[in-house]
Nucleic acid binder design. Structure first.
Lengths: 136, 136
DNA sequence: CCTACTGTTCTATGTGAGATAGAACAGTAA
DNA sequence: TTACTGTTCTATCTCACATAGAACAGTAGG
């Protein structure tokens, strides 16, 4: 029996994202950053729900989405484990989604009225830090 | 009486953004791109609503948000006109919002599992094209 | 003055996503 | 058998969004 890490994680009601969305984003970034190693066991649905003081169904939905995206591997009756990185999306689909994400970001930059150069710089910094953690 | 341009604009029900949100984004980008010149009159609330086959209240909400953001200048009884560019946000507030937008974008890049370099490149391209239009 | 336009404001209604609550099911290990 | 695991289902509540209809104040032109 592998002990599951307490999983430092927080959800806030003020966030525009749904509770399940916050959990999904946090775990995806922790896996990408290497804070959650491949094969590691995640807290149980009910355990994490109690820890976050939210409904178990909300955690279950987040876990289901992560499993569907290939981030977590379910073992029947045992729990969910961090899966090895693999691509479920085709190159075309990934390109399409990236384009949509870029478009959304540009809309926000326009709305803020900030310099395109500053926005590019900030994105470069944030994504650069991401790749460093990925190689770790 | 200044004739208002037909304003090539489209809203789609499938878009995750609300109808008002789509209108707001489109008009902000048209103003930024110079497709809508400063001082130009916008279509009336009821006119644009009829053109888009949506409720006038939805258009009114979009216009109100644009006016609140300083993008449009209301003239009582006349209509809304493209305002001269000015900053209503403090540097600190703009920086805070940019950080939030970057964080959202990074979350999407992580979710897509695409290369950070590719994402940076795409953003740089998109924002570069934006600054070109701004100078026009 | 009167009419026709402009944006604004208000209440009411219907729809859908998100979160909650509670129950039940199947698989696994001690 | 017991206690855990994730999964699935129905039901309810809330809130944002879009719609619908009405009313108001300001402006221009006949």
């Amino acid at each position: 029996m592998i002990r599951s890490v307490p999983l430092a994680l927080a959800v806030v009601p003020g966030d525009p994202r749904s509770l399940a969305g916050q959990i999904v984003d946090s775990i995806r970034r922790k896996i990408t950053a290497g804070e959650l190693a491949v094969g590691e066991k995640l807290p149980s649905v009910r355990g994490l729900a109690q820890q976050l003081a939210i409904n178990p169904n909300t955690v279950a939905k987040a876990y289901a989405e992560l499993a569907a995206g290939g981030w977590l591997q379910p073992r029947a009756g045992l729990g969910l484990y961090v899966a090895a990185q693999r691509d479920l999306l085709s190159a075309a689909e990934r390109d399409r989604r990236l384009g949509a994400a870029v478009d959304r970001f540009v809309n926000e930059v326009v709305a803020i009225r900030c310099s395109p150069d500053e926005a590019t710089e900030r994105v470069s910094q944030a994504l650069g830090g991401l790749s460093l953690r990925q190689s770790a």
